[in-house]
Design a protein around this nucleic acid. Structure first.
Lengths: 201, 201, 201, 201
DNA sequence: AATGAATGAGAGTTCATTCAT
DNA sequence: TATGAATGAACTCTCATTCAT
């Protein structure tokens, strides 16, 4: 891909993806027009098609973009040698702060990816599945080390963490004044206590 | 409202709301056309306007409809004389099973209400706030009775429960074979343990 | 088809087909815009889609319309009990006068049908083939009765007649003052002499 | 024209005309994009404008190119000292084989020239008229020498030959397996017999 | 000699909405 | 109570064309 295009092109293309992310995040995929995106970017509508083959293509790119470093952070968390608790804290922190960093692309991924046709969703699904599996693995290790009670279903646990983070993500997006530090602490507290080893279990 | 219209009209109107809910839930608000809704209902596109002033009006009605008995159930749970645990179980069960009963209206409320202009959202906000406050109250009582540790922030707790239920709701909607009983049990387990009184707290 | 729509609808639809025929005939399929057609018909662009599913659909209908009574006339000629010469005269007359009657639809069929996807062309092909085969049959009879020399290839003959008529059709369309009577006579003369039995053949 | 440009330029320009011919022939004038033409030629869209002032200009050039050696051949046939029959055979053979040689430019001339504005069509008309007049002259000579009956209208005859050849040209273009030799023989046979002197005429 | 980037106009199509019947 | 017919605005997308480099 790089090599076939000039530096300027790639730069503008990234800009286009970011613009699409911002607009989709605000108005939703179907609620956004290509003119909206172009205007946000400061070019004319028709010129968008120099960077995207179609509006759907734009959505695909935004979703991929949104997942990428999200997944990368999980890779590094998962492969580190922290304890279960530390890894869980890191995961939650990473996930929630991404929303505060206004990572519109991730929100778009969560809210709009289902509008993509199956064929364009395969790569996205792989990324999502990869993320979840690493989180499951963290829980599995937690059970091994006795930090998590063995009755916990790792799949359930992973989904629950992700779901809760996304829910809070949406929330803080609409409440910009919220104290993230306190929120993360509360989440960690809830989840750690909810999953941890108990005397009689 | 009632009184000016015949019985049949009201009946058809409810049918129109349910149709709109079904279509919005499947395709999203902007992705749905008024023709889609009319077709789903078995009437012609123009006839919809006999029941809705506009498409936006339809969304408003759907969201209200989606919230109504959801909130009502919470009213009866909240005012019953069950224990904290029982109330939490009832809340989660009510919330999650609503999704399995294909309560499309609730999904639409969660996913699309933000497309409504502020003015049309006031009543919805009141309902949502009411729901959350009752849930907060349940936690407050849990703390009083020593079933929940006092360090828990009731607002946080309520939001967390709602967020998690919605997340699972979306999930089971895409996984129709999932075992709801097990899921609810896992949720209850996580939340009860996550919030409950501990020795040193 | 009839029965599902009102009388007015069918009437307007026919009007739409005629308008499309006129516009396509003048500017070609790709050179015509749906706005052109609508304007010609005296309605607004968007309203066209009440009568056609797409521009391509309009082309299909025009082509079918153009072939229909053209083929019907051939049916009646072919099944009459005229002599070979009379049938040939009738065919040529019918074909050429259709162009003078400003049967734009037939011109469109000839010039633009290849832009239709294979799937939409089957019915058209059948009609065209039917027409040609009846003409071939006329020649076959001519041979039997000794009016056409037996060395003539009926397929070639039929194609030649059709091709020549179309060529003249285009021509007279651009030369509205031309004397059709003389032209038809010349064509008949050429073809009859070209195909007729000779002493040494 | 030559003199202001290098050799390479003229070479590339001819290549551009041939490319435009090929693309126009396949998709029609309005159905072709300048990008199609450029791609066919192996250059970029914008670069086409180095060789053509506009798309319309390209069409003009293609039509001229298509007529040129077509007319030249007629010149040499017409000025040779062959018999009427020989000249007719040569004309038909030349015309029909041009289509098999995939002379796209000629097809484009026939199918698309009417899209050009009057002003750009004068030179084309001259060429076409010249061609036809030479063919008329051949018939006139045929009458003089008693090979064609005197009642024949030379204008009609010339048009008829051209029309028939074009019709078959289009046909063989869609039927690449057809036996050209047989076809030409049939055409000659039809036309010679159709026009020749008869006992009683 | 050729291109990358951009544009403005216009294409086909959809759709919320209206209204006479 | 419901519909057929129409509309106008908006939409996604294409394309001929320009021009600095």
């Amino acid at each position: 891909m790089s090599g076939t295009h000039t530096e300027k092109y790639e730069q503008q293309r990234r800009e286009a993806i970011r613009s699409a992310a911002a607009v989709f995040a605000e108005k939703g995929y179907h609620g956004s027009s290509t003119r909206d995106i172009a205007e946000y970017m400061g070019i004319k509508q028709g010129s968008l098609y120099y960077y995207f083959k179609s509006k759907e293509d734009a959505l695909t790119e935004v979703c991929l973009y949104g997942m990428q470093d999200y997944v990368e952070r999980m890779n590094s968390i998962s492969s580190s040698d922290q304890t279960f608790r530390e890894k869980l804290v890191a995961t939650i922190t990473s996930h929630i702060t991404k929303y505060r960093e206004k990572n519109e692309a991730l929100r778009v991924y969560n809210a709009e990816r289902l509008y993509l046709p199956e064929s364009k969703r395969t790569r996205l699904k792989e990324l999502g599945t990869g993320y979840r599996q690493q989180l499951e693995q963290i829980f599995a290790e937690g059970i091994e080390k006795g930090e998590v009670r063995s009755s916990i279903d790792c799949q359930f646990a992973a989904h629950a963490v992700i779901g809760m983070c996304n829910a809070w993500g949406e929330f803080i997006d609409r409440h910009p004044d919220m104290d993230l530090f306190q929120l993360i602490e509360n989440c960690v507290d809830l989840l750690i206590n909810g999953f941890k080893q108990t005397e009689n279990n």
